[in-house]
Design a protein around this nucleic acid. Sequence first.
DNA 1: AACTCTTACCTAGTAATACTAAGTACTGGA
DNA 2: TCCAGTACTTAGTATTACTAGGTAAGAGTT
Lengths: 103, 103
Amino acid sequence: MTELLKGVLEGVVLQVIQNSQETYGYQITNTLIELGFQDIVEGTVYTVLLRLEKKNLVTVEKRKSTVGPARKFYRLNDAGVAYLADFWRKWAFLVDQLVKIKH
Amino acid sequence: MTELLKGVLEGVVLQVIQNSQETYGYQITNTLIELGFQDIVEGTVYTVLLRLEKKNLVTVEKRKSTVGPARKFYRLNDAGVAYLADFWRKWAFLVDQLVKIKH
DNA sequence: AACTCTTACCTAGTAATACTAAGTACTGGA
DNA sequence: TCCAGTACTTAGTATTACTAGGTAAGAGTT
């Protein structure tokens, strides 16, 4: 399963961020687990987030929390929205190809 | 696109082999290109084939050709068939997850 | 105060995999 | 003879997800 995730996880995390307008790593991890990615580990999500930050697809804002350490809140910026749209286009294309091959 | 292929390509190649009962690397590459994987390069397919061989998912038979060097013909063995079925299960699962996340 | 649990983030190292960019070799035709 | 098409191989690299830790803040318990 893990190899199938390659390249997908980035788009998935971007989509999760977009779905909630604004969210942070710990919450994203839990969301993914709830959605069925049982094996996703915190560390993996954080490396994706750092990558998205480095690629300038998200904005980051650190804010204190009353129940633990400060949270880093992520939002998509314009480049992130475009990147996500492109991800879904590529994904749809891939799904199409695989359907063709299967038959 | 290339990152999205990770993990998928192995299943795709297995399926292409199964579709034609028996085939060889050069032909698989051309089939994939025809099917829309424009950017697939020979070298990539051959490394996948060697991997499938190493994992014991295929049988190999070298036979002479009248139009060039000898061809290595691949067939799925039982393990290959099972592996391919498992690939499609995982793929279906992933597609489901992504549909959920998108909405 | 010391402890534990939950929350929250970070990172060094590793494995898997696809691509780059070559190279080798066989056959047939110009 | 040279070239184009056929056919396979491989060393090196980049990307990416996981392993397996570690750090730290707050709240409640003892």
